[in-house]
């Protein structure tokens, strides 16, 4: 008689969600998302309407203002889940238990990442889109591609840092260390971004900024819509105003980096990692 089929992937996913979002983590983070999103909409909405030139830049500005703090909360949640969830599984040895089940290693990692990142992302985007439809339903409906592009551009950087943190967690096998290194990396790149923007403003040389835009594609979109160079240098220096398609190329480049980082993580976990 053939053995009945088990559902190791779904069960490991469910177990991971149970651990990552045990009460009251999910509730607290959903509350924080909602509060920060709606407060930012209240504060930023009017301002956005007053400065935005075209309907398109209004849609972009609305998204980028509304996303600020919630994106940081999203980052905290996925960092916690990856470092303390997956990192601690490696550190303490829970992964040994999971590897005793009849499931491929990459499926275990997928279940873990779906729980760590997928649920957080669904919660973040769900509340964001709900708020957008409340504040400016017409603008959002008319410019959905821009709204989606803005989210894609902003999310690639946190996803990249998370992939790097995942690799660090696998290498050092210490959840706390992986978390600290991930946060340091995040702030280091954020600081570099600020410095490069200032350098660009003073020197007019956009090359470092273009390189940065691959890691942080939201930079390209930001320069496309707000034209910082033009505003500040008043035409005295060469300005970098990427076209929308150019910004899309940076976003694609950014996601190639994200994909590469996750592929390396998957390869390392599936083929190289000795437990």
């Amino acid at each position: 008689m053939e053995k009945p089929k088990g559902k190791p992937f779904l069960e490991i996913l469910a177990a991971s969600i149970h651990e990552d979002f045990r009460f009251p983590i999910l509730e607290v983070f959903a509350f924080l998302y909602a509060i920060s999103t709606f407060v930012l909409v209240q504060i930023g909405g009017g301002y956005t309407l007053s400065i935005a030139g075209s309907e398109e830049s209004l849609a972009y500005s609305l998204v980028s203002i509304q996303m600020g703090t919630p994106l940081f909360i999203f980052l905290i949640l996925i960092f916690k889940n990856v470092a303390y969830g997956f990192g601690s599984d490696l550190e303490k040895g829970t992964i040994q238990t999971l590897l005793a089940y009849p499931i491929k290693r990459h499926m275990i990692l997928t279940a873990k990442m779906l729980s760590a990142i997928g649920i957080s992302l669904a919660m973040f985007l769900g509340i964001q889109f709900f708020a957008l439809y409340l504040i400016a339903p017409q603008t959002v409906a008319n410019h959905m591609p821009i709204v989606i592009t803005a989210y894609l551009a902003s999310l690639s950087y946190p996803l990249l840092i998370t992939a790097i943190m995942l690799l660090i967690a696998m290498k050092v096998r210490k959840g706390g260390t992986a978390l600290v290194l991930g946060i340091v990396l995040y702030f280091a790149i954020s600081m570099a971004s600020g410095i490069l923007t200032i350098l660009y403003i003073f020197t007019g040389n956009a090359t470092p900024l273009k390189i940065l835009a691959i890691i942080q594609p939201s930079t390209a979109l930001q320069f496309h819509y707000t034209q910082i160079g033009t505003l500040i240098s008043q035409g005295q220096i060469e300005t970098w105003t990427p076209s929308f398609s150019e910004a899309l190329t940076y976003i694609a480049g950014g996601y190639c980096l994200v994909a590469a980082a996750y592929l390396i993580s998957y390869y390392y976990f599936s083929r190289r990692l000795n437990i």
Binding site: K5, A15, Q96, A100
Partner: peptide, 29 residues
């Protein structure tokens, strides 16, 4: 294969019976 490690760690916040029921579903028993 059944495995007994010297020091085992399981998802810590599951209840004993609930987790074993989950394991039953993993193996299809």
């Amino acid at each position: 294969i059944g495995v007994i490690y010297e020091k085992a760690y399981f998802p810590a916040h599951h209840r004993v019976l609930d987790y074993l029921k989950r394991v039953c579903r993993i193996y299809g028993v």
